[in-house]
Design a protein around this nucleic acid. Structure first.
Lengths: 163, 163
DNA sequence: CTAATTGCAAATCATTTGCACCAAT
DNA sequence: ATTGGTGCAAATGATTTGCAATTAG
């Protein structure tokens, strides 16, 4: 099991982003699609950040750094990134969709704090194995799975004073 | 582990619905809220059905039986049902929200078929226990959890011809 | 060159809300 | 009688789309 801090080291992040851009370009070229400046900026931003993000966070962050990309293009690009499996939507029950990067990372599940919104990531092999077992038993071919535990994180519990 | 067939026996369903109506009434009364004909109809319909449903399915089904309840009221009532824990939203990544009844049932997880949309329910104690363990390890207080495995069900795989 | 992409503004779609009338307590 | 509920139509908010101008291959 491992836990990511929400801030990845800057250098590490830049590497990750560069890898992702290269990968996305390969995907696009292979499909006669075009690798544009806007797409590069979007992938760059998405993969430089630690945790999850919403369309608006990404859009605003780009804009804040003077990289003007339209909302439409952000939506369209994120859709492509999902289609090629580099990104995935994580649905936690809010109004707007949130995304997390997949490319270059291993599968993990989440503890989501309902107070502060933070997501703690974890991976448990025993749970993974049991899931496979269940699929086999139902003759079900698993494509992906998602486990989310909602609750209150240690920090919020501490601040809250009581247990 | 157990699996529910998607159709519950009619009599059984009626009982379930009656129980749910009574429970919702208790909740409302206890909060100085009013138990109205519309609310009864909505709860009745929601708890008579087997699987998951969308607002529109419920709305249409009511309407089809001549029970005229406005969409607004359906939305407002489902929200109350979620608030009191009798219902819960299940997010599978579509555009519209889907709900499933909680009251009178035990917690379970899902195998969701991406071909036919069917949801197979299961419960595995070992997974439940491991989740508790993980929460404890992170000093995280779990409020609820949700495990969904997306893939292709046995029936669709058979129809598909290949493995 | 030529087809794909962008940005804008208008269009959708699910869900929410303001308000005048209605009904449960 | 009160006060909360309902239905309608209008408002909202996120996402999508048509289209003319732009640009990558």
């Amino acid at each position: 099991m491992h836990v990511n801090s929400n801030k990845t080291r800057p250098t590490r992040a830049r590497e990750r982003a560069a890898d992702a851009i290269a990968q996305f370009r390969r995907y696009l070229v292979g499909r006669h699609m075009r690798f544009t400046a806007q797409r590069a900026l979007i992938v760059e931003d998405a993969f430089s950040r630690g945790g999850h993000f919403s369309v608006d966070e990404l859009y605003t962050s780009l804009r804040a750094t003077g990289k003007d990309v339209s909302r439409s293009t952000v939506y369209r690009t994120l859709k492509h990134l999902c289609r090629c499996g580099m990104l995935k939507q994580v649905l936690q029950g809010e109004n707007e969709a949130r995304y997390e990067t997949v490319y270059g990372r291993e599968h993990h599940d989440h503890l989501v704090c309902v107070k502060c919104g933070r997501a703690i990531e974890f991976r448990d092999e025993r749970i993974e194995r049991l899931q496979q077992l269940i699929c086999r038993r139902h003759n079900f071919r698993s494509l992906e799975h998602r486990l989310g535990i909602r609750g209150i994180c240690a920090r919020c519990r501490a601040e809250e004073g009581r247990r």
